[in-house]
Structures are given as structure tokens and as C-alpha cells.
Design a binder for these strands. Sequence first.
DNA 1: CCATCAGATGTTTACGTAAACATAACAGGC
DNA 2: GCCTGTTATGTTTACGTAAACATCTGATGG
Lengths: 329, 329
Amino acid sequence: MADVARLAGVSSQTVSRVSNGYAGVNEETRQQVLEAMRELGYRPNSAARALKRGEFRTIGVITFGLSTTGNVRTLEAIATSAAHEGYAVTLLPVAVPTQDEVRGAFSRLGELAVDAVIVILEVHLLDAVTLSLPPHIKVVVADSDAGDRYTVVDTDQAGGSRDAVRYLLGLGHETVWHLAGPEESFAAQRRADAWRAELTGAGRATPPLVRGDWSAESGYRAGLELAGQPDCTAVFAANDQMALGLLRALHERGRYVPDDVSVIGFDDIPEAGSFLPPLTTVHQDFAEVGRRCVEGVLRQMGQDTPEHGTTLVPTRLVVRDSAGAPRSR
Amino acid sequence: MADVARLAGVSSQTVSRVSNGYAGVNEETRQQVLEAMRELGYRPNSAARALKRGEFRTIGVITFGLSTTGNVRTLEAIATSAAHEGYAVTLLPVAVPTQDEVRGAFSRLGELAVDAVIVILEVHLLDAVTLSLPPHIKVVVADSDAGDRYTVVDTDQAGGSRDAVRYLLGLGHETVWHLAGPEESFAAQRRADAWRAELTGAGRATPPLVRGDWSAESGYRAGLELAGQPDCTAVFAANDQMALGLLRALHERGRYVPDDVSVIGFDDIPEAGSFLPPLTTVHQDFAEVGRRCVEGVLRQMGQDTPEHGTTLVPTRLVVRDSAGAPRSR
DNA sequence: CCATCAGATGTTTACGTAAACATAACAGGC
DNA sequence: GCCTGTTATGTTTACGTAAACATCTGATGG
């Protein structure tokens, strides 16, 4: 900066003013400074800036792996929104979703150049971890039920599940089975709860819940099991990957979809329309979740007090070919 | 820091020494300092550190979208490796893969707190962009052919493609069709080149190349076309998503896989084993690519001169059920 | 018993920036 | 012609840290 100032024949403060687009600079001076910057290839040093301003213009994102579509899409939207607002995004991968790992990530975060954190961790691990965060760092959590302590942005899991079950019942199915996600997952829990509630509300029997782990492979195993249940005519899978495995198992066992068994997924991953048959599924607007996370974080940075409360992003049932009326008995 | 020093009854320099694990500090003093740190909740300020040290311990990752599995898995491995080495990862999403956008990302990068960059951009857009990078920033490129100018880490696209084609020919197919990725993609280009070379080398006819855009939907459209070619008995798809769409199209048109048509994909995404039928595909070791990217970046940071040259990560053909011998004529 | 040296700790300074304050030049009103 | 206000610019300072250098203590060896 000093070099630029010297070359342009001004003080370093004037360079700073130009560099920050400050108003009260003579147009002629400004051009000289810009020219000098160009000539010297000047780049403001972000460390010094951050030090001086006391903020990094960076948002940290804590996430467990990038294996699930939802996390990735949300992350992508976060990165885009953040970039749009002039914020950078720093990634904090948590290797294994254990209490210790999460705590570790949070404490690494403490020394990290970050003004705020968005946590995309659907598992029940946030509880004991709160304390280790420096107090000035703002937090938004996606996919959690910690709405009483944090700002939470979530998909309307319950609404989406309700729509799926209602749609299947509307097609004439006696009841709907559920292929759930892993126990540790908040999202899985809420989808299962809503499924159960909707069935109960409609006065239908609740079949035993089948557990998967989000993977297509687990869906396949569950599918082999379900294929053996002759009274199973409709399945609501908690995500599209498991639905994919389910489709394969049913196909292998000669149970045709949708003629013998109807299947509905959750997420609407880009490939869902290319499954065999194309999957009817609940569309999640991950991009919107990401945007609102960034929004929430920035809003909190404008004020001193942290917020809490939950924002729900609505879902939409995308009807394709994997669900139909049950074969008439 | 000054507060900690006061509380511990030492100078701030001693606090710094403790904080950085410096050797020559009396054990007793050290404990007092640590105690004071704990009591005051002291966190070293990373901006000040970066300013003083002249390095940020941060790696920037430029990537176009997070839509392709490969990019995401690579990114994940990068983040993990980097964290392991005490480096943070900052994400620089490029919204649209145009020259301007890429240039923009690179110039934003100039002001970003980053010591090195890993570019995961498979498209032909790097060429004109070189200049805008501050000279001290180290670069590693994944999935590119810029090996003469940068350190490049790539999957052995050619080897994988060759194996796929060779395997299909070995099963007795007369020739192999190719469902290629988009023209702008380096990876797509290399896979297509290797496919053509292998066919030519084996003295087989080269069917017209069919173009997709990596998406399952484009694979479906291509599949409808290929289903109309009676002499098409084997297809090598440039990625698994397109293979998925292809499978659906073939199925809809009554061309059975693998009896009528054999299909091989590329990537080995986690779901590939759950396709109908389970997909034979070329496994890419994205994790290894990510690791080597970080390794390359760190290595260059240890020295002054940038490197160039290409490292290839080997692939592996994963045989499942989508490819078989052609129906005897 | 003093010179020498090693280990432990303190003091000064600089990293690059921008806020706060200071100064200078000039226009306009009375 | 002097005061006031405005605009443009310069000077000083502090952000939190760690390198470089300075100092102090006590031990060792001749």
C-alpha cells in the first residue's frame, strides 16, 4: 500500500480510501491511485483488513461428510449466497459423527477466521457442544430441532411426509409402510413421526417401521424384507437412495412397481426421474434452505443478540410413475 | 493476549510462546499461562497471526457447482486432508462456467485469505485466466490437461476407458458405442479419445459418438436413440448418471440389459450397485485425487518454484451385472 | 572467583490496514 | 476582509501477534 501511495504521489490513507470505494476522493486522484495499483499489482491484504476491522467476512460450515445429497446441495447454495454477499465460506468437515469429533470441530472453529457458523449436522450431537463456541460467533443450524437455542432452518419434513402418505392413501392403499433413515438422524425421526401421525389420524393400522441408513444398499436389504410381505402395497422411503435400492429389491423379487407395490421417496435427487420406474418423491428445496441459512447468519451479525426459532422451507410432491392405485383385490 | 499475560504474571511474548508450543518455557510458567488462557477463554486471533506470519494456513478450492459426484468427493477428500494438515479450506463456487466467471473467481481469490488454490474445473476455461493470480499463490489443478503449466492431479481417464472397452470386446462384442460427456469437459474428451483409440487399436469399427451432458436425463435421451440401433450391443457411458438414464431408456424400449445390450459406466457412484441391473463401471478413487491435490499444494508451499507435471490416479473396473456376452447371433 | 554460557523471560518492533483526528485550500455570506 | 463550512488530503495510531533482540539468573569450568 505504501508503494502504491508513493507511486501515485498520495498518502497511504488515500489509497485505502480508493481501495474501499470511499466517497470523498477527487476523481483525478482516484484515477492516479487506481493506475498505480494496477501497475504494481496491488492486492489488499485480507489478514490486515480482518485484523483492523475485527471481522473476517467468512462463514464456517460444519458438516458431517458430503455424502448425502441434501448436505451438498445445501452447502452449494450457502456458498453461492455467501459469495453473493461478499462472504467466503470455510469448510469444516467432521470425519465421524461422534460427540468428540463435533466438539473438536467446534473448538478448531474457535481459532478459525470465521464470523459465523452454519451447522449442517442432522444428528443428535449438538447438545453438549454449545459451550465451546466463542460468544461472538453467530450460529445457524440446518436440519435440527434445536430451535429453542439456535436459529434453525429446516425443510418441512412433517409436511412432506404427510403429503406422501396422504397421496398413497388417496390412491386407495389400505396403509403405508415406512422405510426410515437411521435413528440418530433428526430428519429421519421427523419423517417417521409424521408418517405415523398421518396413518393414525386416518385411522389406519401402522405397520412395523423398517430401518435403513440412507444408503441404496440398506434400501435394497429392506426391500428384500418388504417383498416378502404380501400385504405391503405402498412404501414411503425416507430418501431417494433407499428408494432406489428398494426398487431393485422389489424388481428382483418380481414385485412390480407400481402395479404390485407403490413407492415414494424423499429429496428428489436429480437422478430420481431416471429410476426404473421414475420415482414419485417429495421435493426438497435445498437451495432455499442454504439461502435462508446465510440470510439468518447475516441478519444475526447485524445485531448483538442471537436469535432462535425455526424456519420451515416447504416441500412439494413430485408425481412420477412409481406410485399408483393398488391392484384391485 | 495482554490480559492473559497480566493474569499469569508474565509477558505477552511468553503467552505467545506457550500458545505456539515453543520449547524453552518453564513447565510451571507454562501451566500458569494455560490456566490463565482457560480462565479468560483466550483464542488466538487468526487474522493477527496470518498478518504476522504472512500465511493463512488456508487452501482455496475453486469448483464449478457441486453437482457432479466426482467434484464433491474430491472436495471432501481435500477438506479432510487439509484439516489433517492444519489447513482450512475455503470454497469458491463458480456459478456458470464461463471465461468471465472463472476469471472473476480468480480475481476474488486474489483478495482472499488463501495460500494456495486447488482448481477442480474440468472445462477448457483455465487458459486465459492464469495471469490474474498473485504470483505467490500455489496452484494445483484436478481434471485438466494443463500439466505443462501447473501441477495436475487426475484420474487415469485413458486407462479406465481402455479397460472398459477392452472388457466389452473381450466379452465378444463386435464393437462398443460411446455415450460421451459434454464437449467442454477435459475428462469427457479424454474418455472419448481413449475409447476411439482402443477400438482402432483392436481393428474395430468406430460407431458414431453420442453426446450427453453428464445428466441422467441426457443419458435417457441418448438411450432412446441407441435403442433404435439394432447393431448396438455394447455401450460405454462416460459417467454413471448417464448410464442410469441409458438403462431406463433401454428398458422402456424392451432392450434388455445385459442380454441385448451391455452397459458400462464411469465413476462408481455409491448408488451404482443398486441400479437395475447393478452397474458394471470404472471406479475412480476421488479420495486419492483429493489427497494428492493437498499433498501437491503443500509440497509447493515448501519451495519457491511452482511445479508442473501430471499425476495419474489409477482406476479399477468394478464388474457387476450390466455387461455380458452378446446374445449369440 | 570470575568468565562463559545456556536457559528463561522481557522489551521493542513490524506485519498492512483503516478509523480518528488534523490540516489545508477554497467558496460563500455578511 | 473575516468567519464558517465544505471538500480533499495527510498524520497518527491501534488492531493482536511473533520475530528479533535484550536482559536476567544461575550453573559450569578453569
